[in-house]
Design a protein around this nucleic acid. Structure first.
Lengths: 336, 336
DNA sequence: TAATCTTACGCAACCGGTTGCGTGATTACA
DNA sequence: TGTAATCACGCAACCGGTTGCGTAAGATTA
């Protein structure tokens, strides 16, 4: 395979000139460039990335860390979309991107550390769940740019992160329910251990407060995200004296159980009862009835992560604050 | 950051000796190795991957190509599992892996070609849908090992591929239905444009033939994989004079529509009617009733792909034939 | 004790690019 | 027309490893 010397020889110039042509240095006149470019094409020349990386001390590669054990990230298709968003951005920059997961990293003590120190990666995108202060410190010490997927619990004002606008998404959902005549809206799946859930809850409360609607504590169900919880707690809700006529599910799987419970109670959806679930998934569309969801654009999230990472890589500037991706409502058969 | 010269200096040896220690050359006595290893640890030395790649002409990286537009691969969580399987294998080898998708590649003419020619990758795992003869030829010319995810339509005897044992999976499903007393089993979702579907169909026919069960052509429904098709065609099946009492869905989404249709007909699942769907997904578990599925181990598929790729990379030998991953039955509420 | 064989490890070229510095040729300016 | 500035491009060192070849010291054998 042709190398830069072959090109230089064929063009009757030095390798310096070829290199400068490749890197578009201004000191080479256009016609020389054109000639060299033509010869590169003829010889089917592609610069050796490893040589380039060695001299420039840049790997032209970024890393995405995934957390296999975290169902919110790896198992579900969201992360996949994020990946896709990153990927598209990255290849436009002639970078490539590698994937490593937390579990493997544990085992090898620290694959991330290895990737960085061996100069395989120039930047890292990783889930907020991984960002303990030790990791942050280590990344800072190695001067490796990073972006957090998701708002971190600590450090939110000192690192760069991207998240869905969870609060606004919930607001949109609740407003939509109210506008369509639902009056008593329950919040199913409150979980104060998860920041995204907190934010959704804040959005829910926000709307009720602005609309001067009394908050009914028995409408707020604390539980984690399983279909059985959805079923059982919805049963309980429906047995209340003043039962709700709509539910906002904070998380996806709950809604399956909830729908089952509503139907069993003889209520018809959406005329008697409305339901909106957070998290758009393929499943929401397949269900009978198909579920109205708060739609989160994970592709965009990936793109933003990549963009913010490249801001740091290329311009050495970092915003060190959060960026929110807006969430929209995807109306289907569970709401009027 | 310390480099090999720093280590050599600190140890009072030449870089050759350090290099040979790192690469575990036999010509260095154990005590010298120990001393050098200790110093490497002290200096927190990690070999520069780019330098290593440059001299050895190996990138210590493989590439996974995904096909974003192909719903069977990118959208669904399967590919994700495959990725995970590959990833685990790869990091144990001190390799890393990069992800590129077809769509981007189209745009850049050929990112794959670029990855290869720039020496960024030593091997490729890619979906069979991408393996047209031109791509195969090009990979062969560059002497890049590759493994196909999925049985390719052409070339099946001349390249290395890994697939689910689709035929056997269908057999297991049909046998299970028969054993549980279902007598008239329909095949919903026949699609002769897809090899995996053909194989599943073969499995279905196989069992009926071995069991000397007459094949009823009106039980075999040709359609593609949507929930609406599942609904409508199941309606049709149920209106037949001798209606079936069980369905094997060749693909996942069909089953949602099918279940709806069965329930609307007043039949109870699983006592009156059984259903097994191909393709285990999260959705199958969430549905009411939860769906019995043929469970395909995609993690194992990824692992096998990686293994077969490394056989080629490390031993320069390739089996050039298919490997099948066995499929098992995941019994849930849609079967007795 | 001399000749031969091992062993341990260094020398230096090499992988394929990049880049600071320098120089001869050309152009601009006075 | 002489001098300075600019332009075009080459020289050679360098990035951080790997490896074939060579050799001195020590071990083995005759």
């Amino acid at each position: 395979m042709a190398n830069i010397k072959d090109v230089a020889k064929a063009a009757g110039v030095s390798t310096s000139t070829v290199s400068r042509t490749i890197n578009n240095s201004s000191s080479i006149p256009a016609e020389t460039k054109a000639r060299i470019t033509e010869i590169m094409k003829q010889l089917n020349y592609t610069p050796n990335q490893n040589a380039k990386s060695l001299t420039t001390n840049k790997s032209y590669t970024i890393t995405l860390i995934v957390d296999v054990d975290d169902e919110k990230s790896f198992q579900n298709p969201f992360f996949y979309e994020i990946m896709h968003g990153i990927e598209k951005y990255v290849y436009n920059k002639e970078y490539s991107f590698i994937v490593a997961n937390l579990k493997t990293m544990m085992k090898k003590q620290s694959v991330l550390d290895w990737l960085i120190r061996s100069k395989r990666t120039e930047g890292v995108i990783l889930p907020s769940s991984m960002l303990d202060s030790k990791t942050v410190e280590s990344l800072r010490k190695d001067k490796i740019p990073f972006v957090s997927i998701g708002e971190p619990i600590h450090l939110k004002d000192s690192i760069t992160w991207v998240d869905i606008d969870n609060k606004r998404g919930a607001e949109v959902a609740v407003y939509s329910l109210l506008e369509n005549g639902y009056k008593n809206i329950a919040y199913l799946g409150y979980d104060n251990t998860k920041l995204f859930n907190q934010r959704r809850y804040e959005g829910y409360l926000n709307v009720l407060e602005s609309e001067k609607i009394k908050i009914n504590p028995s409408y707020i169900i604390e539980c984690n995200n399983t279909k059985d919880n959805g079923y059982n707690h919805t049963k309980t809700l429906l047995n209340l004296g003043n039962r709700p006529d709509a539910i906002l599910c904070a998380d996806g799987e709950l809604s399956f159980g909830a729908i089952k419970a509503i139907q069993e109670n003889g209520l018809s959806i959406p005329s008697d009862f409305g339901l909106i679930s957070y998290d758009e998934t393929k499943i929401a569309e397949l269900s009978y009835p198909s579920i109205s969801t708060v739609n989160v654009d994970m592709f965009e999230m990936g793109t933003q992560c990549a963009k913010l990472l490249f801001d740091q890589i290329e311009n050495h500037q970092s915003i060190n604050q959060g960026v929110l991706i807006s969430a929209s409502l995807n109306k289907r058969e569970t709401t009027k």
